[in-house]
C-alpha cells in the first residue's frame, strides 16, 4: 500500500492532468463554440476523508458524470457541475436544464470531455484504454466523491485526485474535472513515466 507520493511523482501526474484537461477543454470549446479557460491542475494525495473535504462543500448539490476507464488502467474520470453551472451549460446548449433532455445533454458533454481526456492519457502513456459509457447523477457532492473514491481506492490509505477547473469564458459556467486513478492505475502510469518506486 502506497503511503506517500514524492513531489517528482506528483509533478509528473499534474502534468498529465494538465495535458488531459487541456484536451478536454478544447473539446468543450468546440462543442460550445466559445473559449474555455482551464486552471492549473491540482495533484492531491490525501486520506479518503480529506480528499472528500478537498472536493468542496459536502452538501452542495452537484450533477456528476462518471466515466470508468477500462483496459490497461483502473480508475475513472469524473466531471462535477454545480446547479447553476449545469443550468447555464444547458442554456448554452439550447436545452432546458432539469429535464431528461438536459441531463442527457450534460451526460453527453461529460462523455465528450471524458473520452477526450482518456484518449489524451492513452497517447501520453502508451496504455490501451477503453472508456465505458458515462453515468450521470445529481446528488450531494460528498456522497458522489466518497462513493467514487470507495470504489476505486477504498482499501488504500491515500486517494489520488487530479483535478482541474474549467470555465466558459464570459459565462457563469464552471466545471471541475477529476481523474481518479485506482492504485494499480497509478503504478501503471508512473511506471510508464519511469517514476514508479
Amino acid at each position: 500500500m502506497r503511503t506517500e507520493y514524492s513531489s517528482t511523482q506528483l509533478d509528473a501526474l499534474r502534468e498529465i492532468a494538465n495535458i488531459g484537461s487541456g484536451s478536454a477543454s478544447t473539446a468543450l470549446s468546440g462543442v460550445l463554440g466559445r473559449p474555455v479557460d482551464i486552471s492549473v491542475p491540482n495533484a492531491l494525495a490525501l486520506p479518503l476523508a480529506d480528499a472528500v473535504d478537498a472536493a468542496g462543500p459536502a452538501d452542495a448539490e452537484v450533477t456528476a458524470v462518471v466515466i470508468p476507464i477500462g483496459g490497461d488502467l483502473d480508475g475513472l474520470v469524473l466531471m462535477l457541475f454545480g446547479i447553476e453551472d449545469a443550468q447555464r451549460l444547458c442554456e448554452l446548449l439550447g436545452v432546458d436544464a432539469g429535464t431528461e433532455i438536459g441531463l442527457s445533454a450534460l451526460s453527453e458533454i461529460g462523455n465528450i470531455l471524458g473520452t477526450s481526456y482518456v484518449n489524451s492519457l492513452a497517447a501520453m502513456t502508451g496504455l490501451e484504454l477503453e472508456p465505458a459509457p458515462p453515468q450521470t447523477v445529481t446528488d450531494m457532492l460528498a456522497a458522489v466523491v466518497a462513493t467514487v473514491l470507495s470504489a476505486s481506492a477504498g482499501e488504500e490509505d491515500l486517494a489520488l485526485l487530479l483535478d482541474s477547473n474549467m470555465h466558459v469564458e464570459g459565462e457563469a459556467c464552471s466545471l471541475t474535472f477529476m481523474f481518479v486513478p485506482g492504485p494499480a492505475g497509478v503504478d501503471e502510469v508512473l511506471g510508464r513515466l519511469g517514476l514508479a518506486e
Binding site: A49, A142, A146
Partner: peptide, 24 residues
C-alpha cells in the same frame, strides 16, 4: 463523523452528524 471515522457522545446538547453517505 467523516468517511472511515466513528465517534460517541453522551452530553445532552450533542449532535452526531455525517454528511454524504453514498455507498457507505
Amino acid at each position: 463523523v467523516r468517511m472511515g471515522e466513528f465517534a460517541c457522545c453522551s452530553a445532552p446538547g450533542d449532535v452526531l452528524l455525517t454528511i454524504g453517505l453514498g455507498s457507505c
